[in-house]
Amino acid sequence: MTMPFYVPPEQLVKDRADFARKGIARGRSIAALEYDTGILLLAENPSGTLHKISEIYDRIAFAGVGKFNEFELLRVAGIRHADVKGYMYSRADVSAKSLVNAFAQTLGNIFTHEVKPFEVELLVAELGVGDEPNRMYRVLYDGTLYDQTGFAAIGGNSDELSERLAAAYRPGLTLTEAVKVAAGAFEGEVEGWESAVLERNGHRRTFRKLTSEEVEAFIAEK
């Protein structure tokens, strides 16, 4: 009979975290920024079909970086969670807070119980109703949850991206200004944009995708 080696929990958690961080660092980053009438999500994404940004519910958007199949699984689970809750109770009862809690629980469990942790980082943005403030949450690979205001960044270079966003961000930007600020925070040549906004448009559904051309047009605007 072979005896299992003893691995101290500190070492186990550190190894898993290193593994997950390495995976995430290979992916490109995503920035989120509040502007005067909504929230902008901007990602560097050369693919026009493999999306990282998605609608979850009327006022909630999702962005994921890292391993595609893993954050896609969480995205689908998130949409189901929101749709079931809205159907069971009322559309107004679906909130980003309960959604990110579910994400955090799931990721936390996978981090400690599965053979390998998920190599993903998530961002969930929610447009406030009426005068209520917008909300943005970052969820890490181990289920750690951060509440962000104004701007947020996830992905391999999220720390640098976040610093550059902090330097350029101010409350009350217009959408054009917000796109310029967010795009300016990405370094080097960008091969293509994926972008979406949650927008106070008076409709039930507030999520709208922006094409790479629309983003370029905003950047070029004087």
Partner: peptide, 22 residues
Amino acid sequence: MTQPRALAGGITEPPAGFAEVL
């Protein structure tokens, strides 16, 4: 959170629609 059936199902079936999730 409901786990996607794709985990167990494989590719022979389309992903579960909302009615099936319910």
